[in-house]
């Protein structure tokens, strides 16, 4: 089923896009994380450099693979390098 994937952006990722949340439309077959990031990089060129050094959280769990398949209703958080303390 077609729908949207929600992208939650923090810190420099949010600054690169200009807002903290995006809802990206996807087709019924879903989309791979890598393809979604490529699309976002085209829409928001400043995001490319941030994405290159970020970690990703899909539905609350860290993922090390960009091959992970996303479907409608999924949520991806973009975590740039941490700087707490």
């Amino acid at each position: 089923m077609a729908g949207t994937v929600r992208i939650v952006l923090f810190a420099t990722a949010r600054e690169a896009v200009g807002r903290g949340r995006l809802d990206e439309a996807i087709g019924p077959s879903g989309i791979e994380l890598a393809a979604l990031l490529e699309r976002l990089g085209t829409e928001y060129p400043r995001l490319r450099r941030v994405v290159a050094v970020s970690r990703f959280v899909v539905n609350g769990a860290y993922t090390t693979s960009r091959d992970v398949h996303l479907k409608a209703g999924d949520e991806v958080a973009v975590h740039p390098p941490y700087s707490g303390g």
Partner: peptide, 14 residues
């Protein structure tokens, strides 16, 4: 623990 927090905890400062 402070070293770990700085590298592993999703907190950001601006």
């Amino acid at each position: 623990m402070i070293d770990r927090l700085k590298s592993q905890t999703p907190i950001w400062k601006t």
